[in-house]
């Protein structure tokens, strides 16, 4: 048995010697793998990926310190990427990369946005008419109360918490508290995940709930009739959630890492994000399906704020204080 271990250890050490690009990914394997294959085929480079949640990856990188084998960091949330930048894990990127996406380039210039998701309101079109829906997320509790609609939410889900942080950043603590209390007064049903909540809307258990746009897109692509509502331009209910990638300071493979980021922002890879999981691309020249807004319009929906510095901790404290988390 011991000999087997030693042999295996030796093999993996040999593998590390070969010139390979190492990616640490908070995005799921099912999503990343086809893109990595495409990149390998196009460039002839070899890529190895370590998967985990954003938090796990970030913690692991900090424990590895300057011994980290990682070249590229690819995460789900701008909050986690902002943390990586603030902790000095990332190398500043050049203008050739930062100039590619159509928006959301962070102040730190340490990572580049790759795709965008929008917060939206999902609803049951048999219960609610599209033209009646409120123009702002902040009016949602009043609207639901007046119409006697049943509301769902996902307080444990990171994007929901980001949105509460967005309310804090844009409207201040008093307004955020007021909104959360008004929501709570509706006795909303809490769901552990967005698909569970959308399934409940589909099944008629509730009538509406705020979610990420691609979940609704996926339900629609599977043939379910769910309504998708965007609030007015710049409303916090349309908050953009940006995924992104950066190059680690420890990278010894700068050229390959830059190529990988460039590949993620190529129309071909961006088309894959749209087709496979229904996210918005951040470069031109990608075909969108009818479940998505035209790109210019989608980009204008979200309020502008510093996505790296969403007050997430304050949001969590508030949610816990009000007994929602």
């Amino acid at each position: 048995m011991k000999r087997l271990f030693l042999t295996l250890a030796a093999f993996s050490a040999l593998g590390a010697l070969a010139q390979t690009l190492t990616v640490y990914s908070g995005r799921g394997q099912s999503l990343v793998e086809p893109l990595v294959k495409g990149f390998e085929a196009e460039t002839g480079l070899r890529v190895q990926v370590r998967y985990g949640t954003d938090a796990q990856i970030l913690a692991a990188l900090q424990e590895e310190g300057n011994r980290s084998p990682a070249d590229v960091l690819w995460l789900n949330t701008s909050g986690a990427l902002g943390q990586a930048a603030a902790k000095g894990l990332l190398r500043p990127l050049g203008e050739s990369l930062l100039g590619k996406p159509l928006g959301f380039v962070p102040g730190s210039k340490a990572w580049v946005p790759v795709t965008m998701r929008l917060r939206v309101l999902a609803y049951n079109p048999n219960k609610v008419k599209a033209e009646e829906l409120p123009q702002s997320l902040l009016d949602l509790p009043r609207f639901a109360r007046e119409k006697g609609l049943r509301v769902g939410w996902t307080p444990t889900y990171s994007s929901f918490q980001d949105m509460v942080a967005g309310i804090l950043a844009l409207h201040g603590e008093a307004k955020a508290r007021e909104w959360l209390l008004a929501m709570k007064a509706l006795a909303p049903k809490a769901y552990p995940s967005n698909p569970a909540m959308l399934d409940a809307i589909r099944a008629g258990e509730i009538d509406l709930g705020s979610t990420n746009h691609y979940y609704v897109v996926r339900f629609r692509r599977a043939g379910y009739n769910l309504g998708l509502h965007h609030f007015k331009e710049g409303d916090v209910g349309n908050l953009a959630l940006v995924t992104g990638a950066g190059i680690l300071k420890t990278s010894k493979n700068l050229a390959a890492a830059t190529r990988f980021l460039t590949y993620l922002l190529s129309p071909k890879a961006q088309q894959y994000f749209v087709g496979n999981i229904g996210e918005y691309p951040l470069v031109k020249g990608v075909v969108l399906d009818p479940n998505l807004l035209p790109l210019e319009e989608a980009l204008a929906k979200s309020p502008r704020l510093d996505f790296e510095k969403l007050p997430l901790e304050q949001a969590l404290r508030l949610l816990r204080e009000l007994g929602i988390l």
Binding site: G28, Q29, S30, Q56, Y215
Partner: peptide, 23 residues
């Protein structure tokens, strides 16, 4: 997830990878 060799996916990491994207 954190200590396996790179690219070493097991049953549990695959389950995780899919549920992470709600698949």
């Amino acid at each position: 997830l954190l200590l396996a060799p790179m690219g070493y996916s097991t049953l549990s990491t695959r389950v995780f990878g899919y549920t992470q994207e709600a698949m």
